[in-house]
Design a protein around this nucleic acid. Structure first.
Length: 331
DNA sequence: AAACCGCTCAACCGCAGGGCG
DNA sequence: CCGCCCTGCGGTTGAGCGGTT
């Protein structure tokens, strides 16, 4: 632990904070707020630099900090968020009230990363069936999981979906429903009353999707082949809506999203963080997306028409993301 | 008892981006 | 436009602690 260059100049204290320093800082901020951090140490009578004060406040003194060990739910959430957001710790922390980015980063580096690696090793060393793997991974789907399931798998599963865009699992699936995130970062229940065969190919206008794990991961559900679900996001005049349609035996009907609010409003699709996260993930995977096996499980190179189609969809996707950004404003 | 090791967590470092003169 | 300052972020470091040899 070195010292800030500014600390050298001013011979400021470094290292661990004493209870007296904590008290000074706490008293000052409680009374006056922090204002300009660079002036805090002087006003509070501390031999520290502003940066150090800020960090101490954010990571330790802030009254809304939760403290204590992470619950299993929190860990699962971090794993899921990390799968879509990567190392954007501050954005992950924003979804976990009372937790700091530093705390989450430490947890990830010291614990969760290892757990996931072990899980992955277990998976690769044992010949686990796709169904078992999906069940095992439920609640902790990571990026590798998606790449594995949607791209590198060489068998013809029902979750090898179309060519574009990528259906993304985000929700934290629990027994009978899933937790979805609203704009404020709080989860809400989303129940579904049927098993779907979701096909992104049926939603050409779709921008991106966040589906409960079961949609994406559990490819072994007993799904009547005539059931199809399409999801689309309508972008008009900077407003968007998101709806689900289920085609059943050639009849199109509204999917039974059991929520008290209306389906066509944006309640299911309310988290700009996730939209941007999906964008980056899509960009990462896009070049490989035509590696879809044919009926015999063989991966064929894309035809010119498919290439053109993918390019077209890619352009639509980029535009839609831009519109979503405009609709939401910057994060 | 001492040395070693691994882990956790607080804190630092360097950089990027925004605001402002 | 440029430079400076401030803030925030992610990566990294190292003290301290507990377990093991």
């Amino acid at each position: 632990m070195g010292r800030h260059s500014c600390c050298y100049k001013q011979k400021l204290r470094k290292g661990l904070w004493s209870p007296e320093e904590d008290e000074k800082l706490l008293r000052h901020i409680t009374k006056y707020g922090h204002g300009c951090w660079s002036s805090v140490p002087k006003q509070a009578g501390l031999q520290r630099c502003g940066k150090s004060c800020r960090l101490r406040w954010i990571n330790y003194l802030r009254p809304d900090l939760k403290r204590g060990t992470f619950s299993q739910e929190e860990e699962n959430l971090i794993v899921e968020l990390h799968a879509v957001l990567g190392n954007r710790w501050s954005q992950i922390a924003a979804q976990l009230p009372g937790r700091t980015d530093n705390e989450i980063k430490n947890l990830w580096n010291s614990c969760l990363k290892k757990k996931l690696r072990q899980k992955d090793e277990q998976r690769t060393s044992s010949s686990i069936s796709p169904k078992e793997y999906a069940v095992e991974m439920e609640g902790s789907c990571n990026k590798e999981f998606f790449i594995d399931r949607f791209i590198t798998s060489n068998s013809h599963h029902t979750d090898l979906l179309g060519s574009y865009p990528i259906p993304m699992s985000y929700a934290n699936n629990e027994n009978d429903g899933s937790h979805w995130f609203n704009q404020s970062g709080k989860t809400f229940e989303m129940k579904y009353s049927d098993h779907f065969h979701f096909s992104s190919a049926t939603a050409p206008a779709a921008t991106t999707m966040f589906l409960p794990n079961s949609f994406c991961c559990n490819n072994s559900l007993d799904i009547p082949p005539s059931h199809n679900v399409s999801t689309e996001i309508n972008l008009q005049n900077n407003n968007f809506s998101w709806g689900g349609l289920m085609e059943s035996h050639h009849h199109t009907e509204e999917a039974k999203w059991d929520d008290t609010t209306t389906t066509t409003n944006n309640n299911y699709f309310h988290n700009p963080i996730l939209m941007l996260a999906s964008e980056s993930l899509c960009n990462e995977i896009k070049p490989q997306m035509n590696l879809v096996p044919d009926d015999f499980g063989t991966i064929l190179p894309p035809t010119k028409q498919e290439q053109s189609h993918t390019q077209q969809n890619s352009n639509i996707f980029s535009k839609d993301i831009q519109k979503l950004r405009e609709a939401f404003g910057e994060m």
